[in-house]
Write a protein that binds this DNA or RNA. Structure first.
Lengths: 157, 157
DNA sequence: AAAAATATGTTGCATTTACAACAATATTAT
DNA sequence: ATAATATTGTTGTAAATGCAACATATTTTT
């Protein structure tokens, strides 16, 4: 029979759980924010647009790696962004191979800065309640942990 | 025009991103492990079974809160665990309300300890490569960050 | 030169997920 | 006492996700 005094580490006490929960909380907060501010991009579309904006001429696969999505999903997100006129896609070559590169449009830039202005106020009110140094400490700790983890896990995108 | 010298904090530099990426990596590692070890529970089923095992008599909604899933999903996961004979469900009352409580079965306990033995070896080989103190530091930092976050976000389960 | 392997993007599909609507019951307010 | 509200679990549904298979094109191997 199992009791709370087990020596075994249970799921809810693991770092796995803490990561999952924190990640979900962040997603939920930001998602609720997007609804409240009447932003008509999904979170993923916004992240993609932001990432394209300062990686001009990136190809889909490289973007997929940055966004942590597979190629199929990334393509679909880009489809909607292109259809909304926020990015343009064009065929080019990378290492002598045909790839689809992309860039942000004027309309996309306008949309992006509009969203950034909208959420900036809210994000600041959030970080006012949470000590920025704590956030930075977690961020740094997470990053080195993640980099170690990447050495162990095999990912194919 | 946006360049890499923007003062704006981009998605891929945010703590949000780091959380998402680390969380995904952990999930992928563990998921690959389950396949390799030929464990025929999904990750979520395993987490549910583990959590039920030391929260005997918990009701579905409370379990949903622990598992960070909504009630619908939690119910479906429990359906499969019950169908496989790893848990039993029974009607009881909590605060004078009818609820579905549950407990782990003998078969479930056997399955759980079998899985635990299987993955223990691998998890130890993982933590051997990553400094346990670093892991613990990240874990603690994450936890306090998450608790602060919970005060800000509204969740309804 | 031919064959095998690799890189890139797309399509199809099955799974997971969240959200809303619902049913049943119990509590609280009027 | 009746109506309104709240709690719990289930069902339906639309969206997101990841994986495998495919189509093309290029590089590497034989």
């Amino acid at each position: 029979m199992s009791t709370k005094s087990d020596c075994k580490i249970h799921y809810t006490d693991s770092i796995y759980y803490e990561l999952e929960q924190t990640s979900r909380l962040m997603k939920k907060t930001t998602s609720q924010l997007f609804v409240k501010l009447e932003i008509d991009l999904t979170l993923d579309e916004y992240f993609a647009l932001d990432t394209v904006s300062f990686n001009a001429g990136i190809c889909q696969r490289d973007l997929a790696k940055l966004l942590l999505k597979d190629r199929a999903n990334t393509g679909r997100i880009l489809d909607t962004l292109e259809q909304k006129g926020f990015i343009t896609r064009f065929i080019d070559t990378k290492n002598n191979r045909l790839v689809k590169k992309m860039g942000i449009t004027e309309l996309g830039l306008k949309e992006l800065s509009m969203i950034d202005i909208k959420i900036d106020r809210y994000l600041r009110s959030l970080t006012r309640k949470i000590n920025p140094q704590d956030v930075e400490r977690v961020h740094e700790a997470l990053k080195s942990f993640r980099i170690e983890l990447e050495k162990v896990v095999e990912i194919n995108i």
